[in-house]
Measured scan of single mutants.
Amino acid sequence: QTIHNGDQTYHYDNPEEAIKVAQKLAKIYNLTVTVKGNTVQVH
């Protein structure tokens, strides 16, 4: 599972963990989380 947060990319073995982290980032920075296959984008 990969999270793209602007210019930063994070890799997680656990998809659920990746989505949790993405949602935390989204709340902190007031962003949107988009899940596309194995990629979670925060923008």
Rank of each mutant, 00 (worst) to 15 (best):
Q1A: 11
Q1H: 11
T2V: 10
T2K: 07
T2S: 10
T2Q: 11
T2Y: 12
T2D: 10
T2L: 13
T2H: 12
I3D: 11
I3Y: 09
I3L: 12
H4L: 10
H4K: 09
H4D: 09
N5G: 10
N5W: 15
N5T: 12
N5I: 13
N5V: 12
G6S: 10
G6H: 13
G6T: 10
G6K: 11
G6F: 13
G6Y: 13
G6I: 10
D7G: 13
D7P: 14
D7V: 15
D7M: 14
D7Q: 11
D7N: 10
D7W: 15
Q8K: 14
Q8H: 15
Q8N: 08
Q8Y: 14
Q8M: 13
T9L: 14
T9I: 15
T9M: 11
Y10H: 04
Y10D: 01
Y10W: 09
Y10G: 02
Y10K: 02
H11V: 14
H11M: 07
H11P: 02
H11S: 08
H11G: 03
H11T: 14
H11R: 08
H11N: 05
Y12S: 02
Y12M: 05
Y12L: 07
Y12T: 03
Y12R: 01
D13T: 08
D13N: 12
D13I: 06
D13Y: 04
D13M: 08
D13E: 08
D13F: 05
D13C: 06
N14M: 03
N14I: 03
N14T: 15
N14E: 03
N14C: 11
N14Y: 04
N14D: 09
P15E: 13
P15N: 10
P15V: 10
P15H: 13
P15C: 13
P15K: 06
E16A: 09
E16G: 05
E16N: 06
E16V: 06
E16C: 13
E16F: 07
E16K: 07
E17D: 08
E17G: 02
E17P: 00
E17N: 04
A18N: 01
A18Q: 01
A18P: 01
I19Q: 13
I19M: 12
I19E: 10
I19N: 09
K20M: 08
K20S: 07
K20Q: 08
K20A: 12
K20L: 10
V21P: 00
V21A: 15
A22H: 01
A22V: 03
A22M: 03
Q23M: 09
Q23A: 10
Q23T: 10
Q23L: 13
Q23F: 05
K24L: 15
K24Y: 15
K24T: 13
K24R: 13
K24Q: 14
K24W: 15
L25R: 00
L25Q: 01
L25S: 00
L25H: 01
A26W: 06
A26S: 11
A26H: 10
A26V: 12
A26G: 08
A26N: 11
K27V: 12
K27Q: 15
K27F: 14
I28Q: 11
I28W: 14
Y29G: 06
Y29A: 08
Y29W: 11
Y29P: 15
Y29R: 06
Y29H: 11
N30R: 05
N30H: 11
N30Q: 07
N30E: 05
N30D: 06
L31Y: 07
L31F: 05
L31G: 04
L31Q: 03
L31R: 01
L31A: 07
T32Q: 09
T32Y: 07
T32S: 09
V33S: 01
V33Y: 00
V33N: 00
V33L: 03
T34N: 03
T34M: 05
T34K: 04
T34S: 08
V35C: 00
V35H: 02
V35S: 02
V35Q: 03
K36E: 10
K36G: 03
K36D: 10
K36Q: 11
K36A: 08
G37V: 02
G37C: 10
G37L: 04
G37K: 02
N38E: 02
N38A: 06
N38F: 03
T39A: 05
T39Y: 05
T39H: 04
T39D: 05
T39K: 05
V40C: 08
V40P: 01
V40D: 00
V40A: 01
V40T: 00
Q41E: 08
Q41P: 00
Q41R: 12
Q41L: 14
V42D: 00
V42L: 05
V42H: 01
V42N: 00
H43N: 04
H43A: 04
H43G: 04
H43L: 07
